[in-house]
Every structure is written in structure tokens, then in C-alpha cells.
Amino acid sequence: MLGIAHLPFPVLYGLAYGLYGLMAYVLRYRQRVVLENLRNSFPEKSEPQIRQISKDFYWHFAQVMVEMLKLAALPAAELRRRVRIHNPELISGAFAEGRTVLALGSHAGNWEWILPTGALEFPGRTYGVYKPLSNPFFEDFLLRLRTRTGAQLIPMRDTLRDLVKRRKEGRVLSMLTDQAAGPEDRPYWTQFLHQDTSFYSSADRLASQFNCPVVYVNITRRARGYYDLTIRPLHDGSTPLDKDAYVVTEAFARHLERDIQAAPASYLWTHRRWKHKRS
């Protein structure tokens, strides 16, 4: 994989075109899941429109895959040039007060470029919560990929312990919170893209307990290989927060819903996002 990472971007996008054809037309990679998710999320769209979004998604996904590989050999200066950060002061402003900022992201755009870019913008202060993989090869590869610019990773199960340990350190803690939360995860249920949807609600609990500011992070492609990373406020960390009202998680869901509706092909539709049902 490292050898592929050293290939120039034009060659990698040529490989991406081959991946696109393989996933969309030969293997039809999770096509039934993709189409079902799109039909349920956009009931107002016609079947030809749904099919077109599906094709656009596979092309987007193929580009993200080669960009993820490229990250293994991409110089820090080049990564900074390719990702513009908007409103970084919403995060850095809390550092002087010794606060941890929770940054909530999703599997939209090129999500794997968020943490390495954040580590360059906030050196020594960027942490990411992750769920360890069962495959040792991919676990090691992704750990190296995500930490190569200086970010530190925290297993999901250790998040609370880490916040207690570092509660007075000024830093940012990145979390992808759009996965399908199961019954054991104490999910928050809301209407999202016309469907009952379960979200992880840990951000509300952590922000309430540790007085953390919370921001929403979205990364969108502005050109091939170039992105805009936009930070928006969700909670200031000072206003009293009722963890059982799920104000933060609801605000995150609304921001994400608007961004998906604006660029539907850029979301990761291959996951069974709605596999759980409200009890």
C-alpha cells in the first residue's frame, strides 16, 4: 500500500476510475444497501435520480479510497494546502481555558483527512476517538495513517477515563458520531432523512459532565483532491446542559441532514445505517 501512496495524484485518480467501475458495475458493491438507503432518505426523488446519486456516490467513494492511501505518503505542507479550515478559532479559543472541545464529525466527504489535518492546525492538542478493528493488518495500517501528523488515538471504551485524566488540558477530541447506535449504546432517536434514526448520545453526557464546548465538523470536496473543512458551534460549554435533553445530538443530526441533502453523493451509503428499530 505504501508503494501506491507514492504515486502522483493523476495516476491515483486513474486507479480510482477503475475502482469506480469495479464497485458500481462489476461487483455492485453493497448496491442493494446503497439503493435502499437512498430511496428511503429521498422519497421525493425519482428512480432515475436515485440511480444517478448512486453512481455519483461510487465515484466519490473511489476517490476517497485513493486519497486515504495517498495520506500515507502525503507531506504535511501538501495536506495543509489541500484542506482549508474555516472557523478554527471555535476550537482554539477554548485552549487557553484548559478545556476539551468535542468535535463531532461524520462519514461524509473525506472523513479520514479530518484528524490528520486537525493535528497540523492544533499540534499536540488533537485526539481522536476510534473503535479498534478486529483485523490486525487494517488496525495497524489505519493507526499509522491517522497518527502520522501527530494526532493521538483513544479507544472508544477509554473515552471517559481519558477525559477524567486530561480534563484540564486544552485540546480537541474528534468523534465520528453518525454510526448506527445499538440498544446497548443508550441511543438518541430522532427523525433523520425521513426515518427513525438512532444516534450515539455520548456527546451530550460528556459535554454536560465536563463542561466541554462542542462543534460540528464537515469536510466537503471543492475540487478533485481539495477540501473545505468547516467548523460550526453546537454548544458553548458554559450554558447549563441537560444530558437527557440531547440538545447537542439533535443539533448535530440537523446539521448533518442539511449537509447530506446539499451533497447526497458525498455520504457513505454502504453502511446499514438504519438496521436498528426503535423499541
Rank of each mutant, 00 (worst) to 15 (best):
V64T: 13
K70A: 15
K45I: 02
M65A: 15
K70H: 12
L69C: 14
Y29Q: 08
Y25K: 12
Y29G: 05
S54M: 09
L71A: 00
R32K: 14
E44H: 13
F42K: 03
R32S: 10
Y58W: 02
L22S: 12
A72H: 12
V66A: 02
E36Y: 12
V34T: 01
R51D: 14
K55W: 10
L71E: 03
E47Y: 06
L71F: 05
S41E: 09
R28G: 04
E47R: 13
E44C: 12
Y29C: 03
L27Y: 08
Y58P: 03
E44A: 07
Q52R: 13
H60W: 06
E67W: 07
Y58Q: 04
Y20A: 01
N40A: 13
G21P: 02
K45Y: 11
S54Q: 15
R51C: 08
L71Y: 06
H60Y: 10
I53H: 06
H60D: 09
N37M: 01
L27E: 08
P43F: 04
V26N: 07
V26C: 12
Y25S: 01
Y20P: 01
R51Y: 10
Y25Q: 12
L27S: 07
N37P: 07
A62D: 06
S41L: 09
Y58N: 01
K55M: 14
R39N: 11
Y29I: 03
L35Q: 04
Q63S: 11
S41V: 03
V33P: 01
L22I: 06
E47M: 10
D56F: 02
L71W: 02
F42D: 05
F61L: 05
L69Q: 13
H60K: 08
F42M: 02
F57S: 05
F61Q: 01
Y29L: 15
Q31R: 12
Y58H: 02
A24Y: 06
L22T: 09
V33N: 00
V64Q: 10
E44S: 11
Y20N: 00
V64M: 13
Q63F: 09
Y58V: 00
P48W: 03
A62N: 01
A72S: 13
A72G: 07
V66N: 13
S41I: 09
M68N: 11
V33H: 00
Y58M: 03
W59D: 04
Y58F: 09
A24R: 07
K70L: 10
R28V: 08
P43R: 07
H60V: 01
E36R: 14
E44F: 11
L35D: 06
R39L: 09
S41K: 01
R30Q: 07
D56G: 06
E36F: 14
L27F: 11
N40V: 03
P48F: 03
L35P: 05
L38G: 00
